[in-house]
Lab assay of single mutants.
Amino acid sequence: KKVTINGVEIKFNNPEEAVKFALELAKRLNLRIEFHGDQIKIE
């Protein structure tokens, strides 16, 4: 399963991993996060 985070394609074994990764990243950098299907936007 491929997920695009800020235009960067990252391959994950499952979608939950991708979501956890994105949330952790957003929390660490104190950023806002948006989900659009397989696209995750962090700003």
Rank of each mutant, 00 (worst) to 15 (best):
H36Y: 12
R32I: 07
F12H: 01
G37V: 08
V8S: 04
A22R: 00
L29Y: 11
V8G: 03
N13M: 11
E16W: 14
K20A: 11
R28Y: 11
I42V: 07
E34V: 12
K27Q: 09
P15G: 10
F21G: 00
P15D: 09
K2N: 09
H36Q: 10
A26G: 04
V3M: 05
E43V: 15
N13F: 10
K27R: 13
N30L: 09
G7W: 10
I40Q: 01
A26H: 01
I5N: 01
L29W: 08
I10D: 00
F35T: 03
E43P: 03
A22W: 11
V19W: 14
I5C: 15
A18G: 04
K20P: 02
F12K: 00
A18C: 15
I33E: 00
N13W: 11
P15L: 13
Q39P: 03
K1S: 13
K27E: 08
V19P: 00
N14R: 08
N14D: 10
L31S: 02
K2G: 06
N30K: 10
R28D: 02
A22C: 13
I33V: 12
K11A: 11
I40A: 01
K2M: 13
E16Y: 12
D38G: 07
E9K: 05
K1G: 11
E16S: 10
I5R: 02
H36G: 07
E17M: 10
N6D: 06
N13D: 12
A22S: 02
E34W: 11
K41R: 13
I42E: 01
N6W: 15
I33C: 08
E24L: 11
K1I: 15
V19C: 15
K20W: 15
R32Y: 05
E43Y: 15
A18N: 03
R32E: 02
K41T: 12
Q39T: 15
N6T: 04
V8L: 10
N30W: 12
N6I: 08
I42M: 06
K20H: 06
E34K: 08
V3D: 03
I42G: 00
V8K: 08
I40S: 01
K1L: 14
V8Y: 13
N14V: 07
R28M: 09
A26P: 00
E9A: 08
A26C: 14
G37L: 09
N30P: 03
T4H: 06
A26D: 00
K20I: 08
N30Q: 07
L29A: 03
V3R: 04
E24N: 07
A22M: 11
N13R: 13
G7V: 08
F35Y: 08
G7N: 05
F35E: 02
L23H: 04
E34T: 13
K20S: 06
L29K: 02
H36A: 11
F21H: 01
F12T: 03
K27D: 04
F12V: 03
I5E: 02
K27S: 10
Q39H: 13
L25I: 10
K1H: 13
F35R: 03
V3I: 09
E16L: 12
F35K: 03
